[in-house]
Write a protein that binds this DNA or RNA. Sequence first.
DNA 1: CATGAATGAGGCTTCATTCAT
DNA 2: GATGAATGAAGCCTCATTCAT
Lengths: 211, 211, 211, 211
Amino acid sequence: MSRRLTPRGAERRRALLDTAARRFAADGYHPTSVAAIVDDLGVGKGVFYWYFDSKDDCYRQILVDAQRSLRAAQRDAIADEHDPARRIDAGIRASMHWLHDNRHLFALLEQARTDERFAPLVRRGEQQTVADALPHIRAGIAAGLLRREDPELLAVAILGVTDALARAVLLEAGDGPGSDDAAERAAEAAVSFCRRGLLVVPGAGTARDTA
Amino acid sequence: MSRRLTPRGAERRRALLDTAARRFAADGYHPTSVAAIVDDLGVGKGVFYWYFDSKDDCYRQILVDAQRSLRAAQRDAIADEHDPARRIDAGIRASMHWLHDNRHLFALLEQARTDERFAPLVRRGEQQTVADALPHIRAGIAAGLLRREDPELLAVAILGVTDALARAVLLEAGDGPGSDDAAERAAEAAVSFCRRGLLVVPGAGTARDTA
Amino acid sequence: MSRRLTPRGAERRRALLDTAARRFAADGYHPTSVAAIVDDLGVGKGVFYWYFDSKDDCYRQILVDAQRSLRAAQRDAIADEHDPARRIDAGIRASMHWLHDNRHLFALLEQARTDERFAPLVRRGEQQTVADALPHIRAGIAAGLLRREDPELLAVAILGVTDALARAVLLEAGDGPGSDDAAERAAEAAVSFCRRGLLVVPGAGTARDTA
Amino acid sequence: MSRRLTPRGAERRRALLDTAARRFAADGYHPTSVAAIVDDLGVGKGVFYWYFDSKDDCYRQILVDAQRSLRAAQRDAIADEHDPARRIDAGIRASMHWLHDNRHLFALLEQARTDERFAPLVRRGEQQTVADALPHIRAGIAAGLLRREDPELLAVAILGVTDALARAVLLEAGDGPGSDDAAERAAEAAVSFCRRGLLVVPGAGTARDTA
DNA sequence: CATGAATGAGGCTTCATTCAT
DNA sequence: GATGAATGAAGCCTCATTCAT
C-alpha cells in the first residue's frame, strides 16, 4: 500500500491497526475475521482494504510496528548505562515493562512466532534484539565480568528467561490491579536469574550484586 | 470417543494422530484441513470422524499424548539422580533431547500455547512440569545448594531457558546432519546458564561446578 | 481435477457442465455467478468445487468439450467425400448444422474468443480447424480446382463466412420454428459464396457449379 | 449526461474515453475497474463520474464513437467509386485499414458483440453497414455484374470474410513492424476471396479481375 | 468400517458508486 | 471541477461435518 494519507486517513489507519491488534491477540489470526475488525470500529468493510492490501498485510504491519516499538524501548533504557552487565539488566527491565504495557502485542508476537507464515518476520526482530545485545555481552566477557560462553547462546537464554517470566506473570495472571507490581517482580526475578543462575556460590555470599 | 478399538483400529488411530501432528506442526491448526490429513494417509474422510469427534478433538489428543510423553522422559531421566541440582540438570537434558527427537511436537506445543482454544491444555501440562520440579528446587534451597528465591519463578525461568535454546537451536536451524550435536550443545548451554547465570563470581574461580 | 468419478459423479459433472454452459452462453462469464449455476441445478455450492477447480476451470472444460464435439462433426462429415471441393462444402454444412444444434455453445465460443483469458484456447481450436482444412485446399489447388492463393488465408476466409452467416441467421434470428430451414439456407449461402464469390464470371454462364 | 463542456472538459472527456477504450479492449468490460481507468490517467474517481453516468455509459459511448468513425471511413472510401463492384472493394479495403489503425477498437467491438448487454448496440451498427452496402449489391446484380443471390446474405458474408481475415492477421499476429504490410495483404485477400471465391472458373483464366 | 459425494455457513476480497471536503 | 475516503452488496472459494451407499 503505502498510500499517501491525509491526517484523517492516518488516524483511521492507526485505529484499524489498534483494533485489529487487539482482536488478533485475543482470538488469533485465523479466527479473527476482517468483518469482526471493521465491525469493532463501526466502519464498512471496504475501509479495511483501502488501508491494507490484505488481512495478512495488516497483521504484518502490526508485527513490524510492535517490534520497532519494543526495540526503541530497549534502546532508550540502556542509553544511560555504561557498565555492560547493567546494560543487560536495564534491557531486561525495559523489555518486561514494555511487554506489560503492551500485553496484547506480546501475545501477538508469541503467536506469530509459531506461525510458519509470520515466523520469519518475528525471527528477524528477535535476531535483531540478539544482535543488539551481543556487543555488550562481548564487552562484559572481555572485561572479565561475564562468564566466557558463546555470547549468542547467552543472549538467547536471556531472552528466554524474560519471555518465560513475562508469559507466566503477565499473560497468565490476568489484568487485575497490582499487575504493575507483578511486572516489577517478574523483572527482578529475570534479572536475578540471568545474573547468578540457580546455584549458591560458596564464598560469594549473597552480596546484592557485583557488577 | 474412547471407542473400543481392534488392534488394527488402534494402529489406524495412531497413524492418524501422527500424520495429523506433522501437518498441524508444519502448517498450523487452521490451515490444516481434515481433507489434507486424510489425503496424506490415503484414506477417506469418514475414517477421521470414526476415530475423532472433531478436528479440535484430534488436536487435543495429540497435545495430551505429547505432554504425557515428554513428562515420562523427564521422569525417567531424574529417576537415578538424588542430588537436587543434578536432578534439575538431568531434567533439562532429557527435555532437550525429547524436544529434539520430537521436533514436530515441540513446534506443536509452542503453537498451541498461543491459541486461546488450546492454551489451557498446554498450560496445564507446563504447570505439571513446574510442579514436578518444585520439590527438587525446594530441597536444593533447604540444603543450601540453591539460591533462596521464589521456587516457582525459578522453575519458570529454567523452562524458559530450555525452550528458548531449543527453539533457537532445534527449530530454526533446520534438520541437517549434526543436529544431534546441536541438541547436545543446546542442552549444555541450558544447564550451564541455569546453574550459574551470566556473572563471573569473584572468588569462585572457574571451577567446573560445585553441585 | 480429473478426480476418479463414480457413474453418479460423472452424471453430476455432466449436468453441471451443461447448466453452466447455458448460463455462461446467455449471460457471459463474469455475470454468471457460481451461485446461479448451482441454484439452477438445485445443489449446494460445494458441489461445484468438488467437480471443478474453479469457475475458470469449468469454463475451459466447456470450451474444450465443445471444440472437440465440433471437430468430430466436421471429421465425420467429410469422411465420405473424396473430392477436395466437396470436402470443403461438407465441412461447411456440417459446421453450420452443429452450430445450429448447439447454438449456446456457438455463442460461448464467440464470446470466449474475445476474452484475453480464454482466447488462446479458442484460437488453438480454430487453428486446428484451419490445419484440418489445409490439406484439402492444397489438394484442390494442386488439382487445378481451386484458385492459387495462400491456403491458410483461404481457410480463414471460409471460417469467416461460415461464422458470420451462422451468427446472422442462427443467433440473431431467435429460435422460432423454421430455424432448421434457416440453418439450411445459411449453409447453402456459405457454400455458394465460398465457391464462387460475388462476381458473375463471363463465359461461365450460371452453371450451378463445376466442382 | 451530454453536459455542456468547456474546451478543457471536452479534452478530459476524450482522454477518458481513449484510456478506457484501451483498457476495456485489453482486459474486457468486467475485469476493467473504474479505478484502473482513472489511475491510468492519474486523476481521481470523481472525474469519471463527472463525465459519465456509469461505467456502462462510458463503454457505450466508446462503441458509438467507434462505429461512427468506421462508417465514416467506409463512406469516404467509396465516395469516388461509381462501379458497384469497385465500391465494395473500396469498402473492404477501407474497413481493413481502419481496423488496423484502430486495433483496440476492433477488439472492443468484437468483444461487445458477444455481450448480451451491448450486442444490440453493435448489431445496430453492423446492420447499418449492411444497409449501406445493400444498394450497391443490388445495383451490381441488376447490372449483371454480381451473382443473383440474396443481397443481405452476400453483405453478411463480405463482412464475415473481412472480420475473419482482420482478426487472423491484425489481432492475433501482434503489432510488430511490418504490420502495415499485413493489413495490406489481408485487404487483398479479402477482396480477392469476396470477388471470386474458391473455385477456378473454367474459361475465366486468371484474369486479374473482370469487374 | 470406509468412501466419496454433498451441504452451506462463513471467510477474504473487489468494485461501482456516492459524497464531504 | 476534483479528490480520496467510505460504503456494502456480491462474488469466489474453503472446509468442518454428515451420510447414503
